[in-house]
């Protein structure tokens, strides 16, 4: 069967959405597939909204993802998951970190109302076929707070939507990073995978 999978990663600048997108893309190349990615850079350092689009295919594809066409949305933060969910198909899957990061530019009158994570999760559940929610920050912080992105990729792999084997992905981590960093991320990946495999 032809491979044509579109993944959207969305998060807050500093969480590593773009880097995670690259590692995912590199792992797909290892399996002989083609990839096109597009990631935000430049004016989106710490604190801004950041996204990464990863399209994996075996014949033809583009880096541009139209609204309503993605198969999987990986939300590193719930507000950003909602911001980018328009790209997802109706029968697409959302994997979302429940840990909220409220923008510092939010004025005092909106602060309380916008802090309700449940509203955001309900919205995702209502609009898409399947929404998997878990606290990726809690898991990441037990390993290293910088591994949230890879915990989330572990969860994304557990949906079975990504046409790359977990072994190839772990090997890509080993090939791309220093041994201690790779091992830390492999642990993060496995923890995310196991946490959501049951959901």
């Amino acid at each position: 069967m032809a491979v044509d999978v579109k993944v959207v990663l969305a998060g807050v600048g500093g969480q590593g959405a773009v880097l995670a997108g690259y590692v995912l893309a590199a792992s797909a190349i290892k399996e002989g597939l083609s990839v096109r990615t597009y990631g935000d850079m430049g004016m989106s350092r710490r604190g801004g909204s950041v996204s990464s689009f990863v399209n994996i295919f075996d014949k033809e594809g583009t880096s541009a993802t139209a609204v309503g066409t993605a198969d999987l949305l990986v939300g590193l933060e719930p507000i950003e998951a909602v911001r980018y969910c328009k790209y997802l198909k109706e029968d697409g899957i959302v994997v979302v970190n429940s840990y909220l990061i409220l923008p510092s530019t939010v004025g005092k009158k909106d602060r309380a109302e916008l802090s309700e994570v449940e509203n955001l999760l309900e919205f995702l559940k209502k609009n898409f076929k399947k929404t998997i929610v878990f606290d990726a920050n809690k898991i990441a912080c037990e390993i290293n707070s910088l591994t949230t992105n890879i915990v989330m990729l572990g969860a994304a792999f557990s949906t079975g939507k990504i046409p790359v084997s977990t072994e190839t992905f772990k090997q890509t981590l080993r090939d791309s990073f220093a041994p201690e960093i790779a091992e830390m991320n492999i642990e993060a990946f496995e923890r995310g995978y196991d946490e959501c495999n049951r959901k």
Binding site: V12, G13, M43, S44, R45, R46, G47, G48, S49, I79, E80, V82, R83, L102, P103, S104, T105, V106, D110, L114, N119, L120, F123
Partner: peptide, 8 residues
């Protein structure tokens, strides 16, 4: 539902 998140 969501606030804008400009770079800061």
């Amino acid at each position: 539902l969501i606030p804008p998140r400009p770079p800061v």
